[in-house]
């Protein structure tokens, strides 16, 4: 059973799986089958994203204005640097993976172990970075108002042109109601957490600060978000219906509701792939350690997980482009 790799082709092997027109083993071909179908799943996600984006071409959030955080740099506007860093981490862990595959071809167990370990570390850092990114995205920084029609109003300072957070101009009125929890009433009813402010409080705060204006989600021909004048803002703010802080699957403070949904599904599905890739890498890593492939006589298993790992990197290249750059 151990050696299905036949060097000389017998007549009876020809139709019994012995003939390998692609000069690739069964396992490797099946990995390629999986990769092709998984690539179609991801392209389904990304194309659906493109569909929604073209459908809302004049109001889609601008990624540079959403992903502005960098670890240890609070309040610094750093668009894209962090995702760029994540991209480098993933490409680098791809490189250590190829080096592990290459060492496997030379039956160099020590090097395979070393490079596999580096790959696992790189993958773990990437998953951690993604968790950090999600945390920032879900928590949000500024907060916004949503109208009845589902449009997002963000706030900006007229003079400095900088975004203003709700908490900077709104005074919370303590007499208002608190979140209803199941322990306080009928045991099966409760509600999700309330935003820090009510719509009325935000509107009052907005009216009393003369240098605040509304930044709408509409985009002009130059690709910038349209800002309203102070007078227009005072009229439009009456349409506000909800206070939105951060993001969830229903509404988000960045703009179109679909934006957060696609963020969660695409980066989440990719992050799940990275996570399972790390797990598979760990399994193979221990198999290398206990000498399974040394005894088998070849390190093809490392090559197969390598293919999967590179595929995850390949998908990230596309997610990076379509979610963060374009």
């Amino acid at each position: 059973m151990s050696s299905t790799i036949s060097s000389s082709l017998q007549e009876e092997d020809l139709w019994g799986g012995g003939n390998k027109p692609f000069k690739a083993s069964y396992g490797k071909l099946m990995m390629w089958f999986f990769i092709v179908s998984d690539a179609l799943t991801f392209s389904g996600f990304l194309v659906a994203y493109g569909f929604s984006r073209f459908k809302n071409i004049d109001s889609w959030p601008i990624a540079d204005e959403v992903f502005t955080h960098f670890p240890f740099l609070h309040g610094v506007d750093a668009p894209m640097y962090y995702v760029a860093l994540m991209t480098f981490i993933l490409i680098f862990s791809s490189v250590t993976m190829v080096l592990a595959v290459d060492a496997g071809h030379h039956m160099d167990k020590k090097k395979v172990v070393f490079y596999m370990a580096l790959t696992i570390v790189g993958g773990a850092i990437f998953v951690g970075s993604q968790a950090w990114e999600w945390n920032n995205f879900i928590r949000g920084e500024y907060g916004a108002l949503e109208t009845k029609g589902g449009q997002i109003y963000q706030f900006e300072n007229l003079n400095s042109g900088k975004r203003v957070a709700l908490k900077d101009f709104t005074i919370s009125d303590p007499k208002l109601r608190s979140q209803h929890e199941s322990k306080n009433g009928i045991w099966f009813t409760n509600e999700s957490s309330l935003p820090s402010f009510t719509v009325e409080e935000v509107i009052t705060g907005f009216k009393s600060n003369d240098d605040l204006i509304i930044k709408t989600e509409k985009i002009d021909e130059k690709g910038h978000k349209i800002r309203l004048s102070r007078e227009e803002s005072l009229v439009k703010i009456k349409q506000a219906k909800y206070v939105v802080e951060g993001a969830n699957l229903i509404r988000n403070e960045y703009g179109n509701r679909l934006f957060a949904d696609f963020f969660f599904f695409i980066t989440g599905f990719h992050g799940f792939h990275v996570f399972s890739g790390v797990i598979i890498n760990i399994i193979i890593f221990f198999n290398v350690l206990i000498g399974t492939y040394e005894r088998r006589g070849h390190y093809e298993m490392v090559e197969k997980v390598g293919l999967y790992w590179h595929f995850v990197d390949l998908v990230w290249v596309f997610v990076f482009t379509f979610f963060y750059l374009v």
Binding site: P21, F22, K23, G306, H310, F311, L314, V317, T321, V326
Partner: peptide
């Protein structure tokens, strides 16, 4: 430009990291 550069990157990841360059042209 972004899309073209992405496809270029995808080509080199598939061809050199996934060593498609060394596979048969049919594959």
């Amino acid at each position: 430009i972004f899309i073209i550069l992405t496809l270029v990157k995808a080509y080199y990841i598939a061809w050199d990291f996934m060593h498609l360059r060394d596979e048969k042209s049919g594959l």
